[in-house]
Amino acid sequence: MTTFAVLAALLLLLALGFVLPALLRAQRVPPGVDPVHAAPPGDPQRGLAVGLAVALVAGAALVYAAVGAPASLQATRTPETVPELVQHLKTSPGDAAAWRRLARAYESAQRFNEAVEAYRQLVKLTPGDADALLDYAVTLAMSGNQQLGGEPEQLIQQALTLAPQNVQALALAGSVRFERQDYAGAVALWRQVLLHAPADSPVAAAIADSIARAESLAGVPKRGQGDKS
């Protein structure tokens, strides 16, 4: 099984409960974009950090493909295929919205290398867009070694500078810390994410589980343990 397939359930859960509302406002892939179903091979045991990173983008793309755009957007948007977008951008390279749609189309098709190129153009046109920087960071990681260190981390930090309370940025920054085995740093960032999730939601439970795992790896005793009284 591929990494993408193994994480699919988690992606849908996180995207539906937490990530999807913000991403819908950011104009995700429109209905009609032609997907190419070719899942890349990978190790299903990529770990928590990769799972969170993929969930923020790939999971949202899956859900969006399933539910489509809101009716208000459908009424004003003409469906565009990948070839149509590519052709349009040859004559209108400054159309940031089209670059975003093209990047989403490539994401949904798991064509991450091509999505990276589309995002590279997008962030040039919209340098102050924290969401674009974050999506670029995750897709860049997926196209490489599936780790957030290096250039993806730099993009995440740029996004945090622009939007310090952006929950996607906080979650990804926590994943970077987790990759580095800075479990205390990961917990601190993920606790900020937890503040934005409804207390009784599946997402809050998933975040809490991630925090518990990081604390366990850091050697933090579970509540109720270590008390001598």
Rank of each mutant, 00 (worst) to 15 (best):
L7R: 04
A8Q: 11
L13F: 04
A15G: 08
L16N: 13
P21W: 07
P21E: 11
P21S: 11
R25A: 14
R28V: 12
P31R: 13
P35V: 04
V36Q: 15
G47H: 04
L48N: 00
L52F: 15
A55W: 02
A55N: 12
G59V: 03
A60C: 11
L62N: 08
V67C: 09
S72N: 11
L73A: 12
T78Q: 15
T78G: 08
V82P: 04
P83D: 04
Q87S: 10
H88Q: 10
T91D: 08
T91W: 02
G94T: 06
A98W: 11
L102H: 00
A109Y: 00
N113C: 01
E114V: 02
V116G: 04
V116M: 08
V116K: 07
E117D: 13
E117G: 01
L122P: 13
G128A: 11
D129T: 02
V138D: 03
T139R: 02
L140R: 05
M142G: 02
S143R: 05
S143K: 05
N145W: 08
Q147M: 09
G150V: 10
E153H: 05
L155T: 04
L160N: 07
T161F: 08
L162D: 06
V167K: 06
L172R: 04
L172P: 09
A173C: 09
V176D: 11
F178D: 07
R180Y: 00
D182I: 09
G185P: 12
A186V: 12
W190H: 14
W190K: 15
R191W: 05
R191P: 01
L194R: 14
L194A: 08
A197T: 12
D200M: 15
S201P: 02
D209W: 13
S210R: 11
E215A: 09
S216L: 10
A218C: 03
V220G: 01
